[in-house]
Design a protein around this nucleic acid. Sequence first.
DNA 1: CTGAAAGCGCTAACAG
DNA 2: CTGTTAGCGCTTTCAG
Lengths: 359, 359
Amino acid sequence: MVIDSHYNACYWFSYRRCESAFLPIPMTTIRTVAERAGVSTATVSRVMNTPQQVSERTRSRVETAMRELNFSRNSFAASLVTRRSDCIGLIVGGLSGSFFAPLVNIVEETVSAAGSYLIVSCGKDSPADVLAAVQFLRQRQCDAIILFPGQLSDAALQDLLGIHPNVVLIHRSIAGFEERCVQVDNVTGARLAARYLIDCGHRDIGLISGPAANPESAQRLAAFAETLAAAGVVLAPELVFEGDFRLASGRQGMAELLASGRPLSAVFCLSDQMAFGALDYCRAVGIAVPERLSLLGFDDVEYAELVHPKLSTVQQPIALLARTAVEIALRLALSKPSGGPQPLLTPQLMIRDSVRRLA
Amino acid sequence: MVIDSHYNACYWFSYRRCESAFLPIPMTTIRTVAERAGVSTATVSRVMNTPQQVSERTRSRVETAMRELNFSRNSFAASLVTRRSDCIGLIVGGLSGSFFAPLVNIVEETVSAAGSYLIVSCGKDSPADVLAAVQFLRQRQCDAIILFPGQLSDAALQDLLGIHPNVVLIHRSIAGFEERCVQVDNVTGARLAARYLIDCGHRDIGLISGPAANPESAQRLAAFAETLAAAGVVLAPELVFEGDFRLASGRQGMAELLASGRPLSAVFCLSDQMAFGALDYCRAVGIAVPERLSLLGFDDVEYAELVHPKLSTVQQPIALLARTAVEIALRLALSKPSGGPQPLLTPQLMIRDSVRRLA
DNA sequence: CTGAAAGCGCTAACAG
DNA sequence: CTGTTAGCGCTTTCAG
């Protein structure tokens, strides 16, 4: 964490004595410090913000006073005048699904490396929740907001981006706002998956998708079906199950696909979580993976390598995704010129053990 | 998210036009709103904070003005005078390890249900980082801070708690500050593990621990060895490997334990992550779990049920842990009387498929 | 029930 | 290099 480093370094332990409503002991302010050091408040402020502009002597006097008084700057007062909060907001649907966790982690790292800090809102899944979160972060004067749009429709996002100039989207691209959207190339990802399955000799292919309303899912599904079709393979509607990206729906999807009675040699799951669910179901009913059924995921979460068989999957470049989003956000925060429309990030096929090459 | 609900509900889309340093277009303030509604700023403030004290007529006039002007309250200005930020800080070591993710998730939920918001600092592992994070959050006027102390020593924490009255500790207990510490009963957890292994007939038992300096790990190790000893089983020093709670060290630990050449029928890993690593190593070298070797974890992360064999483990009551910590934090934020020393939370043994009952 | 006025703690011209 | 001064936007007595 590299924040206000020249400043912070000296005053680890400064604090406000007590903010109780009942015992409003006054906190140390720059005035107290100024008096003690025999300088003006402006000088104290300078010591914190532009120490080069203060003579060595005065500076050390001020710093001593700060230490002696356990001074800690009130950043709200500062933000009130600078109109910058040095804070970036992040809104994600939920942390549990091991896809978001590394994302948040990397976002935090990148943000704090830039000297800003991160406010996280998670568990916001419904459109109303997301909107509320945006509103909330704006009240908190976040310099920019990174939004993982979840189930929000493209239309709603279009409005949102129009109204809030400092919102950047992760995992979705909205026409007219491409320079604030960071997205993985779902089409390429799905094609990779389709070709690989076909190359391995699979013809009876099923798919477990995300929510139909989710554009990510829709893109992947369409590109997958299309690539299959181009190779003369049809994706039977009975072999497409609509899940919700989560584990349980993978289990359920697998059950339904199997129950359809159609021949089935491979299933493409639009998230690793669902692939895990499918895998779990297979194990429960005694279907060997990949011997009797092949499974291919999407995301490449940490655990893809830990399940048995190790899950073959389409890898999303999460770190790159996160870092790019933060970069854009930081630029917006400084009102710097946009870097132009963002290129789609390219996913990569991770071949492991869950897909069998048919003889 | 239930924040300022009576207020927020109406103004989803309010925003500052532009905070560019170059185009300082003034944002809408309560003054603008007041003028438009033909009232004083005090009244506008009341509409937001104590609407009961405003007549129906004036209130609706003000609310209309707010909507028309896309007003959004500047919470910094508010906090500057109220001296409360409605914000809780959380410091954790890292999000990746699937142990923290649900923790953060639940903390966020609980905090936002109480109308506050959460600032997360993650990836802070070294003592210096943690201290910096605390300092940082204090500057941001967090009403309270929840700290997962990682590798910080008890002595350092004692100082910290003494100096910062609003810090609550998760997963550690410091003498003299019990009312601000929420901890799982590691001793009971380790005993549960030891007894179970013994009950299953194991005598040749190994252990993969966390860092020696980590009190959590030390407690578990001691209680485990002791319980074993009480049953006449010795935990051979050659069969204790010091890991770091992470996956890779589980792999490595397993390798070393096996390399020791001593008979070994069961290994207790002090985190599920390390158990996964150990499991992975076993699979790689062709050792069947649990047939030839039993494995027992600690934590009960989401994936414990997804690996094969499903991991038997000591479950930490994460949700309870998180909620209790938030409760204390919120109480501190309001300077309410402490609820007294916190009881240790009781872990529970989750028996699944990774431990074999010896004939 | 409403308004006037006095700050909260800090920064940023503007002089010197 | 340093001090003076005027606010940032909001809340909160204190009167009316």
